[in-house]
């Protein structure tokens, strides 16, 4: 790491130096305020009554803290005709994300292991083809996918959404594991082959125990992707199977009744909570996934 600090040219006084340092912190602080402001507004708004929202200030703290909006958002807000809050949709998202993450991570691990350690002719081309799949705009597969899900009999179901997320998550999970396993010398696999271990034994006994960091990165990445997905959710779900992002959008844009901004904000925070929690708990791995997903690892 370069030890480089913006400092005034030699000979300038201590005062100038201090001034520069302070303006540096002021600039950083300014950005901190900007970035935190929406979250702050969301939280405070969700704790205010509608009356206070109408009369009060956007950034003012609530005069009277009430959790009514949270309760409504969780179990009473209307998404179109039904008024059950985001609760059922939250669980839908869990039901989609958990198997979706598990399956795509497992398949990605095996794929990456094959591509990196069992190189055969054509493996790199297959990998390139899979990698390209990560970059397509999904609009281009929406129409045929809707039909194929219908043919498979899983249109509008949770299973259908899991299937879609696994298929289009494979490219990234394979990329993550491939880039990780490619740094492990092939000699390790060779030694294990001479020792008599086969494909699965080598994976299970040697590679899997090495893989914890990349598993964490992949799981976080996939979880964030699937939880935050809206396009697949809105395209391939029906009334009872929508994920929480779709439900949130429906609540916010529902035209019936009075606009309850506090409920909207509470619902938004609920929808954001799982991924925010993951970010706070395992931010390091989250960032590693982001950068690995964009720059090649």
């Amino acid at each position: 790491m370069a030890d480089l600090v913006i400092s005034p040219a030699r000979g300038q006084s201590q005062a100038v130096r201090l001034l520069l340092r302070w303006s540096l912190y002021a600039a950083l602080g300014f950005f901190v305020v900007i970035y935190l402001m929406p979250l702050f507004v969301m939280v405070t708004t969700s704790l205010k009554s509608l009356e206070e929202i109408r009369t009060g200030d956007l950034v003012a703290l609530p005069r009277e803290v009430t959790f009514d909006a949270w309760l409504t958002a969780w179990s009473g807000a209307c998404t179109g005709i039904k008024c059950e809050g985001v609760q059922p949709y939250f669980w839908n998202s869990v039901l989609i994300a958990v198997p979706g993450v598990a399956i795509s991570t497992l398949i990605g691990a095996i794929n990456g292991y094959v591509v990196a350690q069992w190189r055969f002719r054509g493996a790199n081309i297959i990998f390139a083809l899979m990698l390209f799949g990560c970059f397509i705009p999904f609009q281009v597969v929406l129409l045929p996918m809707a039909r194929v899900l219908g043919i498979m009999g899983i249109a509008g179901t949770i299973q259908g959404l899991i299937f879609v997320h696994v298929v289009y998550g494979l490219g990234f999970t394979t990329l993550f594991f491939r880039n990780y396993y490619v740094t492990i010398p092939v000699e390790l696999t060779k030694a294990a082959k001479v020792d008599g271990a086969g494909f699965f034994r080598i994976f299970w006994s040697i590679f899997l125990p090495l893989s914890l960091p990349i598993i964490v990165v992949t799981v976080i990445w996939q979880f964030t992707q699937i939880w935050n997905d809206f396009l697949f959710g809105v395209s391939f779900s029906q009334a009872g199977t929508q994920p929480v992002t779709v439900a949130l959008n429906n609540i916010v844009n529902s035209t019936t009744g009075v606009k309850e901004y506090n409920v909207d904000m509470a619902a938004a925070i609920i929808a954001a909570f799982p991924t925010l929690l993951v970010y706070v708990v395992a931010g390091k791995y989250f960032i590693r996934g982001l950068t690995a997903g964009s720059v090649k690892g």
Binding site: R54, A271, A272
Partner: peptide, 30 residues
């Protein structure tokens, strides 16, 4: 500071849109 600059990336675009829709609301927001 890095954590704060980066947290929006963990949010769904739907959440981001909902929050900003409220903030930019002319009658009640900014």
């Amino acid at each position: 500071i890095r954590t704060i600059y980066l947290y929006p990336m963990a949010l769904s675009m739907i959440v981001t849109g909902t929050a900003w829709k409220w903030i930019l609301n002319p009658g009640l927001g900014l």
